[in-house]
């Protein structure tokens, strides 16, 4: 197995692990972390597959996509964390209600 595919496969592993955590855990901080793990998985797939060029160099477009993706992820995580604090501040707990009142 080439290292190229090893990274991509590890990325898929992270992606599904994050998905599992997102569904299983109730605490919002854990859910936000799980989303970030999923994101890292996607970036790892992009980075791993970028090394398949015949001349051994990396594909710059993949790398540009990763940078864009990371910046978007930072922005989304920041908003999610502040929203979580606000949920905690208003409802007294950082979990989503199991069943909405309606």
């Amino acid at each position: 197995m080439s290292s190229t595919f090893f990274f991509a496969l590890a990325g898929i592993g992270l992606f599904v692990l994050g998905l599992y955590g997102l569904i299983i855990y109730a605490h919002l901080l854990r859910k936000i972390l799980a989303i970030n793990i999923m994101g890292s998985g996607v970036f790892l797939v992009l980075a791993g597959l970028a090394h398949r060029l015949p001349d051994g160099t990396a594909d710059p477009i993949s790398h540009a996509m990763i940078i864009t993706g990371i910046v978007v992820a930072v922005a989304a995580t920041a908003l999610a964390l502040v929203l979580m604090l606000q949920v905690q501040h208003t409802t007294g707990q950082a979990v989503l209600p199991e069943k909405q009142k309606y």
Binding site: L28, A76, L79, A80, L83, M84, V87, T90, T91, Q100
Partner: peptide
Amino acid sequence: ALTGAMRYLL
């Protein structure tokens, strides 16, 4: 609204 938005964001 906040819990709805949080779920929506996730």
